[in-house]
Amino acid sequence: MSETDYNQIVQLLCDRLTSLSKVPEVSIAPETNLITQLSIDSIKLLNLIMEIEDTFDISIPINALTDIQTVGELAALVHKIKSAS
C-alpha cells in the first residue's frame, strides 16, 4: 500500500471518529488522542476496530491496540496489516 492509501485510512478514521466522539468541538487530525481528546470509550473503540476489519478485509488483534494512542498511530497499524495481507 502507498502513502495515498495511508492518507485514505486516516480520512476514513477521521470521518468515523467524528460521529463517535463525545467531544464534537475537537477537530480530528492524525495527532488527535483517541482517549484523552475524543473520550472514545473502550467498547466503541473495539466496535470501530471490527468495522475497520470489515472495510479492509483484515484482522486487527485487539492486543495490538495496546500502544495505540492517536488516530495516526491507528491508521499506521491498519496500513501495516493491510500491506502485509
Binding site: D54, S59, P61
Partner: peptide, 19 residues
C-alpha cells in the same frame, strides 16, 4: 492475538475465521 466477532453472529465469526 485476540479477535472479536459480533455477538452471537456465526456468519460474522466465519468471516473473521476466514481472514
Amino acid at each position: 492475538d485476540i479477535v472479536r466477532f459480533k455477538h452471537n453472529d456465526a456468519a460474522d465469526m466465519e468471516k473473521r475465521l476466514r481472514r
